[in-house]
């Protein structure tokens, strides 16, 4: 029998290959990839012994898994199934919460969309039509605040009047700041629309503003009469 050193020397001398190449050839031969054995006694002997060794290893009987392990696996399966069901139950409230947030989000988007859609309009005719159509909608507090600001910023009296007509439907949601518009507003049609809202509201609160308006110099006579009329009802 050759020593390992002798074997290595033989491999090098006769086949001009290193040990790695020799091992690769050996496995190819054992696996049946290469049908032809290297013509050497040592190679053939080694291959034969390794094939026998592999055959012996494959013959070692497989140990069976014990039933208590199978039981443990079944317990784990049951646990996984119930965990899955529990997780669905656990996820449900979060899902419901997320859905609620989405609903609120969409409501918010819808609320914001009136203003953003309005800002996109370029002609006064379109703006008037848009605000007129808002009579068909239920306005939120955000919408009302936006429209109150529009009265301050808008120059076109027709648009202002249309907004005021719309806001008269929400009289209870209008605050003192809104009625202060009486002090600065000069256009008679706008003032009349404002006074229509005051008339339907608890006007006692705005007595001072009404008196100031009534005494304003150069005020349109119809407006003055309307203001006096409201004050007289008091």
């Amino acid at each position: 029998m050759q020593s390992i050193k002798e074997v290595k020397e033989t491999i090098k001398k006769f086949w001009n290959m290193n040990e790695d190449q020799f091992d690769k050839e050996m496995m190819d031969y054992i696996d049946g990839v290469s049908k032809k054995a290297i013509d050497n006694e040592h190679f053939k002997e080694e291959a034969k012994e390794l094939r026998q060794l592999l055959s012996d290893l494959k013959d070692i009987p497989l140990k069976k898994v014990e039933t208590n392990i199978d039981e443990e696996f079944k317990r784990r399966i049951v646990k996984k199934t119930s965990k899955k069901q529990r997780s669905v139950r656990r996820i449900w409230p979060y899902f419901a919460a997320a859905a609620s947030i989405l609903i609120v989000f969409f409501i918010f988007i819808r609320d914001r969309s009136f203003e953003s859609d309005y800002q996109k309009l370029k002609t006064n005719t379109d703006k008037l039509g848009f605000i007129y159509n808002l009579n068909q909608e239920q306005l939120s507090s955000n919408d009302i605040n936006w429209l109150k600001n529009e009265i301050k910023n808008e120059n076109n009296p027709n648009i202002k009047v249309t907004i005021l007509d719309l806001l008269s439907n929400y009289e209870s949601k209008l605050d003192k700041e809104f009625f202060n518009a009486l002090e600065v507003e000069t256009t008679p049609t706008v003032l009349m629309a404002l006074l229509n809202i005051v008339e339907n509201s608890n006007h006692v609160e705005y007595e001072e503003e009404l008196l100031a308006l009534s005494e304003r110099k150069g005020l349109d006579i119809t407006v003055r009469q309307k203001a006096d009329e409201i004050l007289s009802i008091q």
Binding site: L62, K63, K64, V65, E66, I69, D70, E72, F73, R76
Partner: peptide, 28 residues
């Protein structure tokens, strides 16, 4: 796969209990 894996673990670790644990862990 249970028999194959159990024997694979057993022949590598030489430890019966560890092989059972590894088998369970594999399927987990």
């Amino acid at each position: 796969y249970k028999t194959l894996f159990f024997n694979f673990f057993l022949r590598i670790t030489g430890d019966y209990d560890a092989s059972n644990d590894l088998l369970m862990e594999t399927f987990d």
